[in-house]
Design a binder for these strands. Structure first.
Length: 656
DNA sequence: CTAGGGTTAG
C-alpha cells in the first residue's frame, strides 16, 4: 500500500476545536436532543440532521464536541461531517477529519474515502482529491462521480471526461466493472456542458441511450443544458419534449436556457406552459429564471407581477429571488425600486451586492456604485472577479478615472484577483474616454493574457472620439483578425478616416465591407405598453400602427430640424446618396420605438426603450433633441448601458 | 446509521 495521504501535523489534531468556535450554548442544544451523550449513534443522528438541513457549521461543532467528550466517531460519522467541511469549503477542518479517520483506520472505508475525495475537490485541493481517489482500493460509482465532478467544477472538464473514459476502459477489461449510474451520467454530462462541444455531447448522449440511462429525468435535465451550451437550442428542446417525465428542474432548465440565449419570448411561453400544465409547482428558482427573462426583455409590468407572486409565495427572503428582483428592476430602468428591494433583503450574498453595484453602474451612478461597494466590504464579504468587473464598469460609465485606476490595482494587490479580459476592457474604455490613448495602448501591450475584440474595440472607439488615426489603424487591424465578420469595426475606422479628411481610405473601408459581404446584425428596439412588448425593427412595416408612426416621426423631424438638428450620416456605409442615408437613419428602430411611445402615452410620461445593439450617434443626437421638444424623459437601454435623456441632455455625457 | 448530480449575479 502506498503511503497514506497525511497532510496535518499532530499539533493540528491536539487543537482540534480551534477551527470552529464551540460555545456552551450550542453544546446544550445538542445535549437536550441527545438520548445518550456517550453513544456514537446518538451523535451521528444529530450531525446527520444538521448536515442534511444545510447547517454545516453547527454539524461540525457537534462533531468536535463529540470528540471532546471522547466519544469515538464511527464509519457513519465521517461522511456527514466531511460533507459539512465540503459545504463550507473549510480545508483545515477537512484535514483534521481526514487525520482522525486515518487514526481510527477508517479512511479506506468507501463511504469515508468518497467523502474525502468530495471534500478535497470542493475545497479546491484537486491534487489531494486525486491522491485519495488513487488510494481507494475498490472504487464504486460514487467515488468516480466525486472525482469527475471535482475536475469539472475546478475548471478541468476535459480531464473529467478522460477520467470517465478510463472508467469505461476498465469496465471493458475486467469482468463486472463498476456500472454507470444516473448520477455518474449527470456528472459526465456536466463536463460536456462545460466544454460546449457538440460532437462530444452527442457522443455521450448516444452512449447513455445504449446503456439505458437516457430516460432518467436528471440525465434529461443535464442534456437540455449541455445541448444549449453547445448553442443548439432546438436539440435542447427536442430532449425536453422527448422526456417521459419532467420535474420542476426540467422546466426551470428550459426557461433558463431560453432566457440565457436571448429568447425571452420562448422563455415566457415555457413558463406559461408550465403553469398551465399544472403538473409541477414552480419554485424560487423558476421565479428567479423568469425574473431574469423580464430583466432581459425589459418587461417591467410582467416583472412586477412576478414580484407580487414572490410576495404571495413568501419567497422574499430567498437570496436568489431577491437578487433577481434587484437585477430585474435595474435592467427595467428602476434603480430606486431595485435599491428598495435590495434594502429589504434579509441576507445578501456576493451576487446580490454585485447585482446592485452593476445596476448603479449601468445607469451611470458611479458614486453610488462605489458607496455600495464600500458598504459590502464593511460587511466583510470578499469581492470576486465579477464584483470587480461591475466596479470597473461603473467607474468607466461614470468616467471616474482615478477610482477605476485605484481598484484595478487593488484587486490584485489586496484581493489577489488577476485582472481578466473584462477588467482590461473597462480600463481601456476608462483611459480612452479621458483621452489617455497612449496609456490605454500600453496597458494592452502589457497584458499577460491575449487581448480580445472587446479590449481592442474599446480602444478603437476611443480613437474615434479623440480622432487618433494611427492608433485607430493599429486597433482596427487587430480587430479585423480577431473578429473579421463584424462590420462595426470597418465603420468605425472609416469614420476615423473621414473625420481626418482621408476620403480615399474611408472609401477603401466601404469597399472592403461590400467585397466581404458583411452586414450589420439587425437592430431592434422594444417598448412596453400596458403590459405588452412592442418590438420594432429598422424600417419596420409590420407593426399595425406603422403608418401613423412614420407620419408622426416625419412631423417630429421637421420640428427637430427647426431646432437645429442635423442628421449625422457618418455611420451609414451603404453606397447610397445623402437623401437615402437620411431615410435609413430616420427609420432606425429606436426612433420608431420612441415615436410609438410618445404617441401612445400621456403628455409628460416617461418613455422607455430597450435596444439590442449600441445606440448610433445620430439616434443619440436625435433623441436628445426629441426629449427637449416633446418635453419627455426618454430612457434607452442599449447593449452597453442606460441613457437617460432629459431636456436635450443625456446621462452618458455623450461617451458610450 | 452514512457518500456523488442537474436550474440561480457582470
Amino acid at each position: 500500500m502506498k503511503a497514506p495521504l497525511l497532510i496535518v501535523s499532530k499539533r493540528a489534531y491536539s487543537s482540534s476545536s480551534s477551527t470552529i468556535p464551540v460555545t456552551t450554548e450550542t453544546l446544550s442544544v445538542h445535549f437536550n436532543r441527545l438520548v445518550d451523550r456517550s453513544s456514537a449513534s446518538s451523535w451521528n443522528s444529530v450531525i446527520a440532521d444538521l448536515a442534511r438541513n444545510g447547517d454545516s457549521a453547527e454539524a461540525l461543532r457537534a462533531f468536535f464536541w463529540m470528540r471532546r467528550l471522547s466519544v469515538a466517531p464511527g464509519r457513519s460519522t465521517f461522511p456527514c461531517a466531511l460533507k459539512s467541511c465540503a459545504a463550507l469549503a473549510s480545508l483545515p477542518s477537512g484535514r483534521q477529519l481526514h487525520l482522525q479517520a486515518f487514526l481510527l483506520g477508517l479512511h479506506h472505508d468507501l463511504f469515508v474515502s468518497s467523502s474525502l475525495v468530495d471534500m478535497y475537490s470542493k475545497c479546491g485541493e484537486l491534487a489531494d482529491a486525486r491522491r485519495m481517489f488513487d488510494e481507494t482500493p475498490r472504487r464504486n460509482a460514487v467515488v468516480w462521480t466525486s472525482m469527475i465532478v471535482g475536475l469539472v467544477s475546478n475548471g478541468r472538464p476535459r480531464d473529467g471526461l478522460s477520467l470517465f473514459r478510463e472508467l469505461l476502459a476498465g469496465e471493458c477489461a475486467e469482468e463486472g466493472g463498476e456500472p454507470v449510474d444516473p448520477v455518474l451520467a449527470v456528472a459526465v454530462l456536466s463536463a460536456c456542458s462545460r466544454m460546449a462541444d457538440k460532437p462530444v455531447t452527442s457522443g455521450i448522449h448516444g452512449l447513455l441511450v445504449r446503456i439505458g440511462l437516457a430516460a432518467d429525468v436528471s440525465v434529461g435535465n443535464t442534456l437540455i443544458d449541455a445541448y444549449a451550451k453547445c448553442g443548439d437550442l432546438e436539440l435542447a428542446r427536442e430532449v425536453f419534449d422527448g422526456m417521459e417525465a419532467r420535474d420542476v428542474i426540467s422546466w426551470n432548465s428550459l426557461i433558463a436556457v431560453y432566457a440565457q440565449n436571448g429568447r425571452p419570448a420562448e422563455a415566457m411561453e415555457a413558463f406559461q406552459e408550465m403553469v398551465k400544465c399544472g403538473y409541477v409547482h414552480y419554485n424560487a428558482m423558476t421565479l428567479s429564471a423568469v425574473l431574469f427573462t423580464c430583466a432581459q426583455a425589459g418587461a417591467l409590468q410582467f416583472g412586477k407581477c412576478i414580484h407580487n407572486q414572490v410576495v404571495r409565495m413568501g419567497l422574499e427572503d430567498d437570496v436568489y429571488v431577491g437578487t433577481s428582483l434587484v437585477d430585474m428592476y435595474c435592467k427595467c430602468g428602476r434603480v430606486v425600486m431595485a435599491r428598495r428591494a435590495f434594502d429589504r433583503m434579509q441576507n445578501r450574498n456576493i451576487k446580490s451586492w454585485t447585482a446592485m453595484i452593476a445596476g448603479y453602474g449601468m445607469h451611470g451612478h458611479g458614486g453610488k456604485a462605489l458607496e455600495v461597494f464600500a458598504e459590502m466590504r464593511r460587511s466583510s464579504l470578499r469581492p470576486n472577479y465579477i464584483t470587480f468587473v461591475s466596479v470597473l464598469a461603473a467607474c468607466s460609465h461614470a468616467g471616474l478615472m482615478n477610482e477605476g485606476r485605484h481598484w484595478f490595482c487593488a484587486m490584485k494587490r489586496e484581493f489577489d484577483i488577476d485582472p481578466g479580459l473584462e477588467h482590461y476592457a473597462c480600463m481601456v474604455d476608462l483611459l480612452g474616454r479621458a483621452g489617455h490613448l497612449r496609456e490605454a495602448y500600453d496597458l494592452i501591450m502589457g497584458m499577460r493574457i491575449e487581448p480580445d475584440s472587446v479590449v481592442w474595440g474599446a480602444l478603437l472607439a476611443a480613437c474615434r472620439i479623440h480622432k487618433d488615426v494611427e492608433l485607430g489603424e493599429v486597433s482596427a487591424r487587430k480587430l479585423f483578425e480577431l473578429d473579421p465578420k463584424n462590420c462595426g469595426y470597418y465603420v468605425l475606422l472609416s469614420n476615423i478616416y473621414a473625420n481626418a479628411g482621408m476620403w480615399s481610405d474611408a472609401e477603401r473601408m466601404r469597399t472592403l465591407v461590400k467585397c466581404r459581404g458583411l452586414v450589420k446584425p439587425p437592430g431592434y428596439s422594444s417598448v412596453e405598453l400596458r403590459g405588452r412588448i412592442h418590438v420594432f425593427l429598422s424600417g419596420d412595416k409590420e407593426h399595425p400602427q406603422h403608418e401613423e408612426i412614420y407620419s408622426y416621426l416625419a412631423m417630429l423631424m421637421e420640428k427637430m430640424h427647426a431646432a437645429g438638428y442635423v442628421t449625422d450620416t457618418g455611420s451609414v456605409l451603404h453606397d447610397v446618396d445623402q437623401e437615402e442615408k437620411e431615410t435609413v437613419l430616420h427609420l432606425h428602430s429606436e426612433k420608431l420605438a420612441v415615436a410609438f411611445g410618445i404617441m401612445n402615452t400621456l403628455p409628460g410620461a416617461a418613455i422607455q426603450v430597450i435596444k439590442n445593439l449600441r445606440i448610433c450617434g445620430d439616434c443619440h443626437t436625435a433623441i436628445k433633441v426629441i426629449s427637449k421638444i416633446a418635453s419627455r424623459e426618454i430612457v434607452i437601454r442599449d447593449s452597453n448601458r442606460f441613457h437617460h435623456f432629459r431636456d436635450g441632455w443625456c446621462s452618458c455625457g455623450d461617451y458610450w
